[in-house]
Design a protein around this nucleic acid. Structure first.
Lengths: 207, 207
DNA sequence: GATCTGATCGAAGGGATCGTTG
DNA sequence: TCCAACGATCCCTTCGATCAGA
């Protein structure tokens, strides 16, 4: 996400062009400028600019689907510690069930805080492929470890890593990183999990 | 100057349309949108030097009218609890039935206490779209919750939150906030409810 | 818990920037 | 010495709630 400043009247004009309740500035401007949506664009680029691998990637994607034999791990074992402690039942934010859904989601796009998007992405990645996620969770930095099943583990592997729980998941992540690193972490993780290059890029850029 | 967030590719596209070195985002967008320069615009608007909002409001009204598809929920259920309890029968201030009406209302504008305006706005928002209001009621701060159906709930989620009942509504709000935060709360709430950006701004600024 | 409003200032969170390491 | 990758300090923003002011 980029931020730009507009003169007030111009801002008002653009806002007044809202057609669907809740539209983002990007949505409105794309329409006004008669630009294709992000995805259309992304696809075009994938084919023309990038490389010929797009075909390959598509094939890869199929492979993935077929190989989806994953056994759901006994997350229950870990889920035993949940929030009963917490007073007000945390309203379960219904996240989409797949990442490509998530990154297209209106609400998701409107989130301005990148940590939030980061966590939600991780949450959905886990939901899709818990086993692969768990395996990919090994990725780490020079001194810090990125993922763990306890806050303490992350805390003890660096200073002020700002661990955060990944909702609906037994994992925690470090959070004291710039956005670039968050993208790297997503990229590494998804690569490890076996996602196609194109999707990985799309997800990383969505932060 | 207003700030908006754009998706990265859109930002890049706009930046790439620079024709004169040093052009601002506003300059570029005006050209792309084939809009007159600020001066031309300013003259047109000149009618209302003070609050440039008159134009805004007009435009806003149109948007809203079209989108008025919301189903009115059985507010009667709640209307059963009215004020008979209260000592001095509060003269039921007949609030307008829609927010844009409310914020244009003479009486409303004359209210100097922002809490009062804050509550009235909430009351009208509820009247317009009870269901959406209820859903949007989830918004909260870091420690405090902002809305609840009981005073106690608000009291227990922070210290001295000064809960107040929102008239003609099953909800309570916290009130121990500065005006800026009250505006934020309105902004968040209305956004969540799906109101167009322009109206949201107008309402927030009316506090 | 009882005066009420809300600005001010302190606390916490987010993440860019800059220092460190290999 | 320089470069790339990584770490985490620290600045800025957002939020909370005390307490000044009426």
């Amino acid at each position: 996400m980029k931020t730009i400043e507009l003169e007030d009247d111009l801002y008002r004009y653009i806002a007044s062009q809202t057609q669907d309740i809740g539209e983002s500035a990007s949505d409105i401007l794309r329409r006004l400028l008669a630009l294709p949506t992000e995805h259309a664009t992304a696809n075009k680029n994938a084919v023309s600019v990038e490389d010929s691998s797009s075909l390959l990637e598509r094939a890869t994607e199929q492979n993935r689907v077929e190989s989806q034999v994953v056994v759901s791990s006994p997350s229950s074992v870990i889920e035993t510690n949940p929030a009963v402690v917490v007073d007000l039942a945390p309203i379960v934010t219904n996240l989409p069930a797949s990442i490509d859904k998530l990154i297209k989601d209106k609400e998701f796009k409107n989130i301005s805080v990148s940590v939030t998007k980061f966590i939600q992405i991780l949450s959905v990645l886990y939901a899709e492929h818990p086993t692969e996620f768990q395996a990919a969770t090994e990725i780490k930095g020079r001194k810090r470890i990125y993922f763990a099943k306890s806050e303490k583990a992350l805390l003890s592997a660096g200073s002020t890593t700002k661990p955060r729980k990944i909702e609906h998941t037994p994992f925690w992540v470090i959070t004291n990183t710039n956005t670039g690193r968050k993208r790297n972490m997503i990229t590494q993780l998804m690569a490890e999990m076996g996602y196609p290059h194109s999707l990985i890029d799309a997800v990383s850029q969505s932060i």
